[in-house]
Write a protein that binds this DNA or RNA. Structure first.
Lengths: 159, 159
DNA sequence: CTTGACCTTCCCCCACGGGGGAAGGTGCAG
DNA sequence: CTGCACCTTCCCCCGTGGGGGAAGGTCAAG
């Protein structure tokens, strides 16, 4: 966990003279990618991947080129994690986040996406249930049959 | 649809003189990869892929290098298609077929695999059902909420 | 003879969600 | 000074189930 000082901010904008020393004007904490990844239960690789995929805005860089993250990044990553745990794909999460960018709440959009997710889940559940019924029928047939009666010409007459 | 003649068989072993002409000693029908693929509702690419993956034995080759298939291949491909339709992975199907190779019926093995499939499907259905419940709860929260009350610091307070 | 429809091998490509590891820079401690 | 742990970019890899297309051989018909 590093610290970001006004020192740095003003160095960027030009004048650094007459400014208080570091440790005096601490502005906000800055985390390295590994720390923020750990805080979000992910790996640095995953964070770079999310940035590349547009789930995270291009991170601020320190003078050494290191990515700098604040607590808001952890919150955003938590949101992403919740979305993925909810079965949303990366692109769906990107859609939600993109809609929010301008500042307007994406609730309606989120609602649409969630409705789509519900329909998709119902579809998948129905497919798997039908598949399960078919597999169960095959299983019953195999369990009831005698291996000796297997039709050699069909590899397995029960499947 | 081509025809395989004794002619070819004996040409391979050497002496082809004194042999009956083709069309006389027809032995069995031989299909090209495209025909057999079409009969099985697949593409030639898929058949080569299955051969590479060990689902099909390395095909016999004609003198021109073309793969040669018989009706047994269609039956085997139908088995594979049934297995895939039943949700079996390529490697699971390979296991079943491998067990059958020596000649013993793999019914017990098939039964084990189907039992595993059932357990796996039940697991997946349970997961998706739980996920659906969570998504539905989020949906209800979003639908009941007022966008104006969105907590800007949390991206979307309902997810 | 030419054309078209087959076939062969070869290698690269898709989505998905990242992981592995190389080669090189950085920062702090001993 | 030398480790060590961290960071950077880069490119390739996993598994799943094939698809696309190039470059070249083969075969029958017109």
């Amino acid at each position: 966990m590093g610290n970001l000082y006004l020192y740095w901010n003003l160095q960027v904008t030009g004048d650094r003279r007459k400014l208080p020393r570091p440790k005096v004007l601490e502005v906000r904490s800055v985390m390295l990618i590994g720390e923020v990844a750990k805080a979000a239960g992910m790996t640095p690789k995953t964070l770079r991947f999310y940035e590349e995929q547009g789930l995270l805005p291009p991170a601020q860089r320190g003078l050494n080129g290191y990515r700098q993250y604040g607590d808001d990044s952890v919150a955003r990553l938590d949101f992403i994690a919740r979305g993925r745990a909810a079965g949303l794909s990366v692109s769906q999460i990107r859609n939600i986040l993109a809609v929010r960018e301008p500042g307007n709440a994406p609730c309606a959009h989120v609602q649409d996406i969630l409705a789509g997710q519900l329909a998709e889940l119902d579809q998948k559940i129905a497919e798997l249930t039908a598949l399960r019924a078919g597999v169960a029928a095959s299983y019953e047939a195999v369990a009831a049959g005698n291996p000796a009666t297997c039709d050699q010409s069909r590899v397995c007459s029960y499947l």
